[in-house]
Amino acid sequence: MKTKYMNPYLAGVLLGLVLLMAFFFSGRGLGASGAVKSVVVTAVDIVAPGHTANSDYYGKYVGEGKSPMKSWLVFEMIGVMVGGFLSGALSGRLKWRVEHFPGITANRRLVFAAAGGILFGFGSQLGRGCTSGSALTGMASLSVAGFVSMMAIFGTAFALAYLLRKNWI
């Protein structure tokens, strides 16, 4: 099969080295959902400061001298945008489009993307991290939580694949 992408195993090794550098420099792994959480906390804090201060959840991230946007993950995710853009530019993949299986409409794809995003956002907070923050990083540091997350995420996706086959194949 001819592919326009990098050899997956080579990409995996490079991904592992990036993760290893994160451990070596900052003592922590990669993440993604944490940055989105910072955005949510900041937005809610601007709209309703009293609400965040009193909340069990937001309260951890706001208050004197704390700024949720000045976090490691936020800067890392800004880097991801830059890196993704550079790679797309290099490989000629920059294009505005809704990517979807030809058998479904673009609108259907967008509705499902939104629904999936909501579930993923919710689950990432409950599970203390997403595929990168909990599963990938957790596995590299041999954390039980990492292996459990990985199996739960991929296991569920496989289990539901048949129900959603019309969207993809």
Partner: peptide
């Protein structure tokens, strides 16, 4: 961790992305 993972797994197959990959895809 299990419940969150199950919800994320559902989100993955329904939405087709995970948070990190979605940001990367949005960038292009």
């Amino acid at each position: 961790a299990i419940t969150g993972g199950v919800i994320m797994g559902a989100g993955f197959i329904i939405g087709g992305f995970c948070p990190g990959t979605s940001v990367c895809a949005a960038a292009i």
